[in-house]
Design a protein around this nucleic acid. Structure first.
Lengths: 189, 189
DNA sequence: GAAACCATTTGCCATTTGGCAAAAAACGAT
DNA sequence: ATCGTTTTTTGCCAAATGGCAAATGGTTTC
């Protein structure tokens, strides 16, 4: 919970009353390994902040292959592109790669925060924008790199993930096959 | 100019007074082919909306190769990730692929609009979010596709661009070499 | 029309990656 | 420790892509 507050404070100021209000509306939950946090086609009813664990975001392409779009690790907010939207139905899946802990808010409570706390929307907006930019930059760079560069880059940017994410998922994130990734790893050593 | 207003109206309502105010602050400019709209390291002083032409966004990777991150075609707003930021210095280049026409606003005027028009920020935010999501989706899909799929996809998503953008730039956007693209094109016919 | 310039295609060969299946290694539960 | 399961590595060969340079095609300029 404190992690979440500290995270928010990076993006704007909050006084003790406001922090109290946020805490009063938050619920801490656990999400076990391999459980879905979001499922394509199922309405999202809460906003969450990941305090522990790793979540994988993926979708299926037109060949039915599972494509990992990205990983979410500790201290990241999980919300739909359009926060305000009353009803949001994702087209991708979010699934726990490890046991996870999250701080979650109902859509209604989140809305209350937005209406009560001056600057809340601005904080949230900054967070969303930051995440978007990161994702664009990361995915973008992959396109012009070969397998080895992609993997080296991945290790550099997600050092905490390399050792706790199955290689098959990393390969699917990098856009190469698992055997290629394995060969690449061999050559690097 | 009307294109711009219509574009805005897709994202929220504006009354005649508000539209008048927006128009009064807008300036229409031309940007000739091969001129820069943004240059890495140079402060951006205006917000623009492209009404005619195509702009290419690119950067240099660590090997000094020019990488095209994306193309901007008609009816797209050009602003930095963080609109509000007083000073924004891009790390990429925006250069006109064709002669372009833009509607531009100074940062100050843009700020005035934000402070005067209720809902302006929300409209702008929706636009930014939409653009971000599109970019993430597009770049993301490229990663898991082979050259042919990338090109077919590109043609489908940017039908208006295929015939007016040099192949070298398309190749760099797709993350393949120009010769590969040329061979791919031959095989498709 | 010729020359100069730029964009695109092609040839040749090396390198990388994919596809598929089997082997090896790592992990968990009993 | 052993069995069963999952993850990772390999081998083999086909297909795709890269790198480089030359050839072709198209456009502009004088």
């Amino acid at each position: 919970m404190e992690e979440f507050i500290n995270y928010l404070l990076q993006f704007g100021n909050l006084n003790q009353q406001q922090i109290g209000l946020i805490k009063s509306k938050a619920t801490e939950i656990e999400l076990h390994k391999d459980k879905y946090y979001w499922e394509a086609g199922k309405t999202v009813k809460q906003i969450g902040f990941l305090t522990d664990g790793v979540i994988r975001v993926f979708y299926y392409n037109n060949k039915g292959e599972e494509i990992t779009r990205y990983f979410i690790d500790e201290n990241h907010l999980i919300l739909s592109g359009n926060t305000v939207a009353e009803v949001f139905t994702p087209s991708e899946y979010l699934s726990a790669l490890t046991d996870c802990k999250l701080v979650v808010f109902s859509k209604q409570d989140w809305k209350d925060l937005s209406e009560t706390i001056i600057g809340w929307d601005s904080i949230v907006q900054k967070i969303i924008t930051k995440h978007h930019s990161e994702k664009i930059t990361r995915r973008s760079e992959l396109v012009s790199q070969d397998g080895t560069e992609r993997y080296l880059d991945f290790m550099q940017k997600f050092p905490t993930l390399v050792n706790r994410v199955p290689l098959a998922y990393i390969a699917s994130y990098l856009g190469i096959t698992q055997s290629s990734l394995s060969r690449i790893r061999k050559n690097i050593r």
